[in-house]
Design a protein around this nucleic acid. Structure first.
Length: 555
RNA sequence: GGACGUGUGGCCUAGUCAGGAUAUGGCGUCAGCCUCCUAAGCUGAAUGCCGGGGGUUCAAAUCCCUCCACGUCCGCCA
């Protein structure tokens, strides 16, 4: 409703002024949408902007009213548009329907890769920034109507995995031991790295394992496969706890076994940018890259980058839009990948880069065992949430309280991570992670539960799709923005916009709740407000679910 | 040294790409609000050379130049 109304106003302005860009901007407190076109017309018309604004407003106000129901008002040099009652009615009618905000079904197939952490230890608070950005984007794409496949790319043949396999063999570790596999693998990996650091000559054994696995040696392959599977099983448990699911796990080694890597390396070797010495590399200096992009080692094995090119060519052939979520440490290799795919004439992926999460004492490192695992974070947040739920809802059974505490914990974690723009590096802070107040997931869940509670107590009412008074209108207009926010997230790949939106909706609802009685209102006012509460409830529910957060009916 | 990103009240943060009205919120601080729809809440107050300097513009947190600080990367690792 918001977008169609703005489009209609823009068309009228375009027709009247003859300008392509009619300078529509957010009206803030002054208007629902405003045009600053009077400024740019001032020079050529040789008139004051305020006069021009007056003229425009006078000339188009009837047409705007007839077509959109919006009021046009010149305020100083601005032409302001204030949406009217008809707009609010239509918004409310749409917003109470199940699935509000869902876009029309699109045909463009999208593939989204996220998390893809190396299977050499548990997911930590840095990895889950990738996970949560990726999963929230995925949910937004589905909400916007795109057919989407979410993939996890498993690095099952890199140096890190060779180190794990070597560690298991040399340490005599029991790979089938009880417990969560990803944590078990971390212990092996950390220990193996200690040995390698002490005696660097041992790296020759790692190199040998990597050659064997690439040449297809069955024993080495299974030596790699078993720990990778154990680790991945651990990841899947952690991801499921965070409401994250991948549609498909794609193994790096598949692109060796099926010959795709060899094929693409041969294609690349014929490029004018190719440099064939002991190694095969690409000279991408024309694209602003200082150093050559090495794809094949002097011992004939391929590097990660080569397999990655093969993987992305495959994705480009099977999907219309390819999106990767990658940490800032992948910026160089990611942009080299984009440049190379461009040279090859293949589909170039869009990459969402996010900056690092560090600990107050410094950066995280799986190799050094310096990290806070996602499992630890979840457990601690659940413990805190349980305290809170028990204090508030002592009448509930332990099982019920645990269920709420889990939902609250995941909500706090997911929201804390998604609300910040990905480009900003952050320092992990327990106090902030465990905060369930304002600007948190639980705060928004609470607003939703509050709306549910009112509706439950109301029992019956006659829906009335009208908004009157400042509070009701402000809430309705915020509800109206939800579909636009979903569209913005998928076009700009900025999932934090949804987090900000949901919080603002909860803010406005809370203010409304405190200012306007709903159940104690009478007659039509009661019907009107209950309808508005229902529209808010539904919009909050849809927004929360798109954020991967449970919309609890009570908490 | 080079590349990329970030810098917004004591702390955290939105807005920057597509310049426009009084810079968004939170934490913390202070003053209020539960005999009334869930106080994980609400209302009000104080706190800002939007990193520094220069420029473009009627108009700059936003665009350009420059400097500074922090993070990341610059490996025949992934």
């Amino acid at each position: 409703m918001y977008l169609t109304t703005c489009d209609a106003i823009a068309a009228i302005l375009r027709q009247h002024t003859g300008k392509e860009d009619v300078m529509l901007t957010d009206g803030g407190d002054h208007a629902d949408v405003a045009s600053t076109i009077a400024f740019s017309l001032a020079k050529e018309l040789r008139k004051a902007p305020a006069i021009i604004a007056q003229d425009i407003a006078g000339a188009i106000c009837d047409k705007v009213m007839a077509e959109t129901g919006a009021e046009t008002r010149a305020v100083g040099p601005y032409v302001n548009f204030i949406f009217g009652a008809e707009y609010c009615s239509k918004v409310l009618e749409q917003a109470v329907r199940e699935g509000y905000g869902k876009g029309t079904e699109k045909s463009e197939r999208v593939v989204l890769e996220h998390t893809s952490a190396n299977p050499n230890g548990p997911l930590h608070v840095g990895h889950i920034r990738n996970t949560i950005i990726g999963d929230t984007l995925a949910r937004c794409f589905r909400k916007a109507g795109y057919p989407l496949e979410v993939q996890y790319y498993v690095n099952d043949m890199g140096r890190q995995i060779a180190i794990v396999a070597w560690g298991i063999a040399t340490q005599g570790a029991d790979i089938h031991a009880e417990g969560k596999g990803d944590h078990l693998i971390a212990d092996v990996y950390i220990e193996a790295n200690r040995h390698l650091e002490k005696d660097p000559a041992l790296n020759a054994e790692i190199d040998r394992l990597m050659q064997l696995v690439e040449s297809g040696d069955p024993d080495t392959i299974s030596q790699f496969k078993i720990p990778v599977k154990r680790c991945l099983d651990g990841f899947k448990d952690t991801l499921a706890a965070m409401h994250v699911k991948h549609d498909r796990f794609i193994y790096e080694s598949d692109f060796i076994r099926n010959g795709d890597t060899a094929k693409v390396l041969s294609r690349i070797s014929h490029l004018p940018e190719a440099r064939i010495e002991e190694t095969l590399s690409l000279d991408l200096s024309a694209y602003g890259f200082e150093k050559n992009y090495i794809l094949r080692r002097s011992d004939g094995t391929s590097v990660y980058a080569a397999r990655d090119i093969a993987f992305h060519i495959w994705k480009g052939h099977n999907f219309d839009r390819v999106i990767d979520v990658l940490g800032a440490d992948h910026k160089l290799i990611g942009t080299q990948l984009q440049a190379t795919l461009g040279i090859l004439g293949e589909r170039v992926p869009e990459i969402v880069f996010f900056e690092f999460v560090s600990l107050p004492e410094g950066s995280m490192s799986t190799r050094k065992g310096k990290f806070i695992s996602a499992d630890e974070l979840i457990a601690e947040t659940e413990r805190r949430a349980m305290e809170e739920v028990t204090a508030r809802r002592s009448e509930l059974s332990e099982e019920e309280r645990k269920k709420i505490a889990h939902s609250v914990a995941i909500s706090a974690i997911r929201y804390d991570i998604i609300r910040t723009i990905p480009e900003k590096s952050t320092v992990f802070d327990w106090k902030e992670a465990l905060d369930f107040e304002k600007q948190s997931g639980p705060y928004i869940q609470y607003a939703h539960a509050r709306a549910c509670s009112i509706l439950e107590k109301a029992e019956s009412y006659t829906p009335c799709f009208e908004a009157e008074g400042e509070g009701e209108i402000a809430l309705t207009k915020q509800i109206a923005l939800f579909p636009k926010v979903i569209t913005d997230v998928v076009t700009e790949l900025k999932p934090h916009l949804l987090a900000i939106y949901a919080r603002e909706l909860a803010d406005i609802f809370n203010s409304f709740y405190h200012a306007e009685p709903v159940l104690r209102a009478e007659g039509k006012i009661r019907d009107r407000r209950l309808t508005l509460v229902d529209a808010t409830r539904n919009t909050l529910k849809e927004a929360l679910e798109t954020l991967g957060i449970d919309a609890l009916r009570a908490m």
